[in-house]
Amino acid sequence: MTAAGPPVEVLTRRLLETPGEFLAPTTVVPALVADLLALHGAVSLDQAAGALLRPLESPEARNWLGCVAVSSWLLADPTLVAPGSGERAWVFLTGDDLRELASLVPAPALVSEPDRREELARRALAALELVPAGETEAEAADRLTTLDSSERARVVAATREAEVRAEAVREAMHAKAAAEAAAKASRE
């Protein structure tokens, strides 16, 4: 990350205003992406690239295409559009990061959930090698780690496992406390 990008708030605001059509199942995602790449100065999609974005039947694939559509809307923000950034935009839209995010987050949540909006905005900035305005690279990286859905899912899963174990212990303690209270009451 080297260049200064726009403030994150500008991008999250744009995501909040995502037109409903971008999340509609009838959206032709390859056309959206082609327009976006043209905006970023890249050549149009070839047939092989377009095939990557063909509508697929599985729910996971449909969700990923929804994420691609929302991301296309985001990357079309004037503060992100720059000549020569088309390749980085393409890599972001079809890369592992967005696929991983799509495996964890429903596409509509990228619009409706504040944290998910911020995560997508920060991921997009990172993919375009931009640092959010007003932040250092380290601060931006730390914040993205905090928001990272896969990291959050992993941490929360670990927390849940630990809690299940701890809860069993606490249940035993609770039962013991209840028994002691009952014994005290009967003594009194």
């Binding site: 729910p59 996971e60 969700n63 799509a102 495996s103 964890l104 987050v105 429903p106 949540a109 959930e113 998910r116 859905s149 959050r152 899912a153 929360v156 899963a157 849940r160």
Partner: peptide, 9 residues
């Protein structure tokens, strides 16, 4: 509270 942290579904 953990709904969307466990996957889309």
């Amino acid at each position: 509270l953990n709904g969307d942290l466990t996957g889309p579904a």
